[in-house]
Design a binder for these strands. Structure first.
Ligand SMILES: [Mn+2]
Ligand SMILES: [Mn+2]
Ligand SMILES: [Zn+2]
Ligand SMILES: [Zn+2]
Lengths: 142, 142
DNA sequence: AACTACATTATAATAATTCTAAACTATTGA
DNA sequence: TCAATAGTTTAGAATTATTATAATGTAGTT
């Protein structure tokens, strides 16, 4: 999202009350050039630092889930026991760097579209996600 | 794995002591026709029932991780806060039925090989996993 | 301003997982 | 054969992530 979005408007549009906490979170999450990945704990720290005031952990959970439900955020699953969230809500794939535990977006050009030839009968495909685990070229095995 | 494997031998081969608990777990996990997916809690129940005696939760965790390290099991990540494990350790992809929370193996023929055109520089690809989330054809959205 | 619905908060509760340290067991080799 | 040793199991405590609770606060409406 571009700079100087009117987050109050944006929140109203999707039916979320523009409370101080939610607007703050919008600033931290969306008022930047590039999308990024974060954990809840990352986010709590970012908000506390940027806004220079405390925010309740429960509020961060609630608000992140509110944003997720409204399509502002996506949850990404990795072989870890943490939830990662993504401000890039378009359908895309990921590299996961096992050396650094970093989640990296695949570019459109990095990977060909996944071709599913046969689906489960009577079911609709809701999403297709590819996770490519990488590590340094050495003798590194997970 | 076929029936009547000598699990004691198998465990020794990979350097795991064939303790009573490990052999029991092998029976439950591998002495069957088809591979399957399970959570730790599933497994504790299965072992307790089949062996008709208690097993410590910590032992199940330890042993599952020991098996995972030795390549007997694979961990599968889903957008849930539970770990699923898989007795099918070959490289394969999954459907996840969001109606039933069931994890289903993709068949070789269900999906074309994933073509990665550009990898992260200096990194080796350790795994490529596709997760296809499906739900009943109705007005079901996650 | 007052009312109402919704949101935030601190804190407690729950759930999954890991840690601890004592008791136990498989393996080795005298 | 049997003690020594290294590795394993166990119950329970600790840790971590997440969710629930219920009191307090705030946004939107009249
Ligand atoms: Mn979640
Ligand atoms: Mn795990
Ligand atoms: Zn992403
Ligand atoms: Zn599988």
């Amino acid at each position: 999202m571009p700079k100087n979005c009117n987050f109050i408007e944006k929140l109203r549009e999707v039916g979320l009350r523009p409370t101080k906490q939610r607007v703050n979170m919008c600033e931290v999450l969306f008022n930047r050039e590039k999308t990024f990945h974060f954990t809840i704990n990352d986010l709590v720290k970012m908000i506390s630092e940027k806004m220079n005031q405390k925010i309740s952990l429960a509020t961060v959970y609630n608000t992140v889930h509110a944003f997720e439900k409204k399509g502002y955020l996506k949850e990404i699953s990795i072989d870890s026991h943490k939830s990662y969230f993504d401000t890039n809500t378009s359908a895309h794939h990921h590299f996961f760097d096992e050396d650094t535990n970093e989640l990296i977006d695949c570019d459109e050009n990095d990977i060909d579209p996944v071709n599913i030839k046969k689906n489960i009968t009577g079911k609709k495909i809701n999403s297709v996600e590819v996770l490519i685990k990488v590590a340094s070229d050495n003798h590194n095995q997970k």
